[in-house]
Amino acid sequence: MLYSLARPLLFSLAPERAHELTLSLLKSCQKIGMMRQPVAAKPVTCMGIEFPNPVGLAAGLDKNGAYIDALAALGFGFIEIGTVTPRPQSGNPQPRLFRIPGARAIINRMGFNNEGVDQLVENVKAARFKGILGINIGKNADTSVEDAVADYLLCLEKVYHYASYITVNISSPNTKNLRSLQSGHALTELLRTLRKRQLELAAEYQHYVPLVLKVAPDLTGQDIEFIASQLIQFNIDGLIVTNTTLSREGVENLPFADESGGLSGAPVFEKSTWCLAEFSQHLKGTVPLIGVGGILSGEQAAAKQQAGASLVQLYSGMIYTGPELIKDCVNAMI
């Protein structure tokens, strides 16, 4: 209700400014106890973790983990922060975020703008949140794809002690050549190396933190079959399906549709859900799936579950519908 009143004002601002203002307001309201959305308990055990409900926040909204407590008050079953890189980076030049209200869509080319992994860790340590926290890791823009594994290893090591699970983001379209890590020898080497280090860290900390891969929706059936085989081979703990799409299907001829970057929101729902169902068919329950992409209603969250997802994540849909979407999704899921 409150969000429906605030949305016209927020949509009158530049998208990135509205994003920053919304997070600041949420944090202020949470600090004085004005914001808490009660959500039904609906526990789900996935990756060896018990989630209080199956609806989480996707990475990208809180890149630096600076708003964890405020976002947790909205009723999410889990929060994922990042993408974070080893060193701070400013991302791509502004403007780099575009709303397409006619399609309930967003295009972004943010480019992993963040304050670096050390700052993220400090923010996590300062948060009071004791729930399920995913940390999404990536590589710096000026790190070559050939040297990318070193960036992921560094981030894995630094966040391991503070994460409930760690997501390896190789699917953003806004870091040059990043998606090449989804195929062939590059994926094999990345997963082999990270899995080996994960097990070493588990022994070191006497605590196992699941490792999750996040993939793009712009995959062929052959791509999906290969990635699924690699997940099984290296015993990866989970898969997030999917990131944003390079397709412009569903936004043709609308303002900003020709902007470069990844498309999210309603138009990506069918493509991402198809990928989810395909992965489910290949993996046959051996790797838990997290469905994300185009969820704007409880019914769509339930559809992700029916396609094979154990959990779902929201982001763009909340920009159009508000935080009540969280409650709607929890209520609609089994």
Rank of each mutant, 00 (worst) to 15 (best):
V117F: 07
V117P: 02
E122Q: 10
E122P: 13
N123F: 01
N123W: 02
V124N: 00
K125V: 13
A126F: 12
R128H: 04
K130H: 12
K130N: 04
G131C: 00
G131P: 02
G134W: 01
I135N: 00
I135P: 00
N136V: 04
I137G: 02
G138A: 08
K139V: 09
N140E: 14
N140H: 14
E146C: 07
E146I: 07
D147I: 08
D147H: 14
A148C: 10
V149W: 10
A150P: 05
A150H: 13
L154T: 14
L154F: 15
L154Y: 15
L156S: 07
E157Y: 12
E157M: 07
V159Y: 00
V159G: 00
H161V: 08
A163K: 00
A163N: 03
I166M: 06
I166V: 10
I166N: 02
I166K: 00
V168T: 05
N169A: 04
N169R: 03
I170E: 05
P173E: 06
N174G: 08
T175W: 04
N177I: 09
R179F: 14
S180I: 11
S180R: 14
S180K: 12
L181A: 02
Q182N: 11
Q182S: 13
S183V: 05
G184Q: 11
L187A: 03
L187I: 10
T188W: 14
T188L: 11
E189H: 08
R192A: 14
R192L: 13
R192Y: 14
R192Q: 14
T193M: 08
R195L: 07
K196F: 15
R197A: 13
Q198F: 13
Q198N: 09
L199C: 11
L199G: 08
A203M: 09
A203V: 10
E204D: 15
E204Q: 14
E204I: 06
Y205T: 09
Q206I: 09
Y208C: 07
Y208Q: 10
V212E: 03
L213N: 01
A216K: 02
P217G: 06
D218K: 06
L219I: 05
L219C: 10
Q222S: 10
